[in-house]
Amino acid sequence: MARMTMVEAIRDAMDVMMGRDDGVVVFGEDVGYFGGVFRSTQGLQQKYGKTRCFDTPISEAGIVGTAIGMAAYGLKPCVEIQFADYMYPAYDQIVSEAARLRYRSNGEFTCPLVVRMPTGGGIFGGQTHSQSPEALFTHVSGLKTIVPSNPYDAKGLLIAAIEDPDPVIFLEPKRLYNGPFDGHHDRPVTPWSKHDLSEVPSGYFTVPLGKATVVREGSAMTVLAYGTMVYVAQAAAAETDIDAEIIDLRTLLPLDMDTIAASVRKTGRCVIVHEATLTSGFGAELAALVQEACFFHLEAPIARVAGWDTPYPHAQEWDYFPGPARVGRALVETMEG
């Protein structure tokens, strides 16, 4: 066991897998010599050499496109898009190619690929360093989509993602890279070293894909969250003194409906929180699934707290980000509903 930040845990996952499997290759913009703009790949080129970890031209389509070719050859590329906001040039390769190789070739060609991308806001990143595009991936058949919320999960899920035989989109909330964040931007940030989940086993271990985890047991309602919003939800529950059961989804697709449905059937209420914009966001899918699975147990309408349906603004960061006050109001209203 060692104390790690989320960045260190992610780097360690790649280190472990590069050591175990010489088919694992890591590349992206500034990923090689420099070790990544967030330091996620620091030291990997030095340790494994330039053909295992290298810098690429600034071309997201090129990064993902070549990675798909490598995966089809038999390697296990784990590539980085510097910000999720810049994945759009690669979207055709991800949606039309990576997600469909297995299906359209009837299994002749497969795509064991991981695309890592820092995601989410809360860092004054403005319009192109704050987006949460997960719904653009969960809508795509053939992809798996993951959002870890702590160092332990980040390492275990990333190792599982690299080993997974299918393409995985691995969204890393950059607001959580150096410490948990509950939305109280006016308070000093606590580093990961003060948090239990920064205890990360050394070496190989996995956190299975497709499994949610209950981060706070409760009886009054179920809160579905992932990424940074896990901590915001915890703060909101504490501040409103509502006995909420908070579930960290961890994997958005495939979704752990068993854990979700069991919780909502127990609590009878459900609040869904995410940073991404509301309309057609992943929360809409969650709300639809919960009402299908738990209709007769619901005592209040399912509530969604999300980013507003606007581009992510700069100056209005804290008016936009669904912080503990907004989430708390939704919890209170859902108890009243």
């Binding site: 496109g65 070549t66 990675a67 798909i68 070719g69 490598m70 089809a72 190619e97």
Partner: peptide
């Protein structure tokens, strides 16, 4: 571009 990746 996938061909280039396969060759790489």
């Amino acid at each position: 571009v996938q061909a280039v990746g396969w060759a790489m």
